[in-house]
Design a protein around this nucleic acid. Structure first.
Length: 261
DNA sequence: TCAGTTGTTTATAT
DNA sequence: AATATAAACAACTG
């Protein structure tokens, strides 16, 4: 589930275990994931710098060093692995940062997403593009303001990174299911209590999935745990789930808990 | 062989 | 100006 929780997990691992380490060598085994600098530049620019506290905005990870920053997006199949050494390397480890102690690997099977080099915050802003507020720690009032100026399908809004940063297909379905809102309802037609339910569902889903990263998906009683299974039923009322497409993505919902109107 | 997959960008249409 | 849709990217799995 490379959505906000995965990226936040990676950020915490780095913060706890990699801050202070020095990059000795950057090995690029697949230049296809480098988006704005050739492998040689990446290595030359980063070499000798130490990792400092990383940041996250939505699904973007910003790995700061004492010099430039590495801007990382996981796409659908990416992640970071902190290893003790070269053992355990995988063929989808596309870039490897050899540290003075251990190594950091950017693994990405499908190569959507990638890795950027940025020299300052302004460059990072340009790489990230327009992003809404981060979904983790989003306040209720802020959410109300956001919703007030959005029209169209509610699920499309949740997944729109310019509206709200960090929520993808699975989290959007989960939040809607929790809030008992049909994914194809229109934002401007949601009544005030429905908007509050949506916020509550979103907050619970984002917070819980960040704190219990290892169990997501797979958490009992969650939509994620059953979506896609043949004959899957709503964990709440056991009605057979509905399946449709919203915002271009396969969408699961409970026809009973989340009525169309 | 075919359909499907957690994400984003681009083009096109409304 | 926003929003909706589809295709493309790419590499797998069932």
């Amino acid at each position: 589930m490379p959505e906000l929780p995965d990226v936040e997990h990676a950020r915490r691992v780095l913060a706890e275990r990699a801050v202070g380490r020095r990059i000795e060598l950057t090995v690029t085994t697949d230049p296809g994931v480098l988006r704005n600098a050739p492998a040689e530049t990446l290595d030359r620019t980063l070499r000798g710098h130490r990792l400092i506290e990383p940041e996250r905005h939505g699904k973007w990870l910003i790995v700061w060093t004492s010099g430039p920053a590495i801007v990382i997006h996981f796409g659908m199949t990416g992640g970071l692995i902190l290893g003790e050494g070269p053992q355990g390397r995988h063929r989808h480890d596309r870039v490897i940062f050899e540290l003075d102690q251990g190594e950091l690997r950017y693994r990405n099977m499908r190569k959507l997403g990638g890795l950027w080099l940025a020299l300052d915050r302004q460059e990072i802003t340009g790489i990230l593009g327009p992003l809404g507020p981060d979904a983790l720690g989003l306040g209720r009032r802020q959410f109300r303001e956001l919703v007030a100026r959005r029209r169209g399908w509610v699920k499309a809004a949740l997944m729109d990174q310019r509206f709200l940063a960090g929520v993808g297909n699975l989290l959007a379905d989960e939040a809607l299911w929790r809030g008992r809102i049909h994914p194809a309802r229109r934002m401007e037609e949601l009544a005030a209590p429905e908007r509050e339910r949506l916020f509550d569902g979103l907050r619970t889903v984002v917070r819980t999935s960040v704190e219990r990263f290892d169990d997501v998906p797979g958490m009992r009683g969650w939509l994620m745990n059953v979506r896609g299974l043949p004959g899957a039923a709503c964990p709440r009322c056991h009605t057979v789930l509905g399946r449709t497409v919203v915002g271009g993505r396969t969408t699961y919902f409970c026809p009973r808990c989340q009525p169309e109107r």
